[in-house]
Amino acid sequence: MRLILVGPPGAGKGTQAARLVEKYGIPQLSTGDMLRAAVAARTPIGLKAKEVMDAGGLVSDEIVVGIIRDRIGEDDAKTGFILDGFPRTIAQAEALEQMLQAGDQKIDAVIELRVDQSRLVDRIVKRAEEAKNAGQPVRKDDDPEVFKQRLEAYNRDTAVVVPYYEKTGLLSVIDGMQSIDDVAASIDSVLQGLDEKV
C-alpha cells in the first residue's frame, strides 16, 4: 500500500502515520528525516542537499525527488510506504508518478486531513504546554510565530497538490478536527474501501 498524507502542520499527520506504520508494517517517509539521513550518510544526493542547505537555500525538486527515489528503492519500502511532507508541488507530484510508473507501481490513496486552521494555533500551543508539563523538549516549530509561518508556507506552496490529486480521483478528505481515534477510524474506512476495490 502506497499512501500520501496531506495536511497543514499540526493536522495530525505524524500521529496517524505512526499508527499506519504499526498497522501495515510499511515505513513512513518524511522528507525532512530523509534529507537529514542522506546528508549524514554523505550520499551523492545528500552532499548536494548539504551544499544547498549550508548556503541557506531551499533544496530543489530534483534533489528531493532523488532522495525519495533512493529511499523507496530500499527493501522495507518494497511493499509500500507512507509519504509525509511530499510531494509539496505539482512538479514533485508528477515526478513521483513517473518514478513509480517506471517501477510498475502507483499511489493507492491520498488522504487529506482537513482542519480548521484558525483552531490549529490553539492546538499547537496546547501541544507545547503538554510537552513542557511532561518535562519533554518543546519542538522548535511549536512556537506560535514559527508555526504561523509554516502554515502560510503550506497554504502558499503545498495546498496546490490537493486539487491535483482530487482530479486523479485518489483524494479522500478526512475531518482532522475529530479525535485521534475518530480520524484513525475514518482513515481505516478509506483504506478498507481500497481493499474492496482490488
Score class of each variant (00 low, 15 high):
A109K: 07
D84Y: 13
V52C: 12
G56M: 15
A153W: 12
I4R: 02
Q192L: 15
L35T: 03
D175Q: 05
V115G: 02
R71W: 10
I67W: 00
F147W: 13
Q192V: 15
I124E: 00
R123H: 09
V121W: 02
E51D: 15
E112F: 06
K126C: 13
P137L: 13
K23V: 10
Q178S: 04
R119A: 12
V146E: 10
L29R: 02
S118L: 04
G73V: 07
V39W: 03
E166G: 11
D141Y: 05
L170I: 07
K132D: 14
Q98N: 12
Q136R: 15
A159P: 01
A49D: 04
S189Q: 15
L47G: 12
I111D: 00
V115K: 08
R123N: 06
V52Y: 05
E51Q: 15
Q98Y: 07
V161P: 01
D54F: 12
M53Q: 13
V59F: 09
A11Y: 04
L58S: 06
A11Q: 01
A102N: 07
D70L: 07
D33P: 13
S186N: 03
N133W: 09
V160N: 01
G10D: 00
K48F: 15
A55F: 11
D143R: 10
D141I: 08
D75Q: 09
V146M: 10
L194E: 13
P87Q: 11
F81C: 01
G135F: 04
G169H: 07
P144F: 06
I107M: 00
F86S: 00
V162Q: 03
V125I: 08
A18K: 15
V121H: 06
S60Y: 04
A91I: 04
D116N: 06
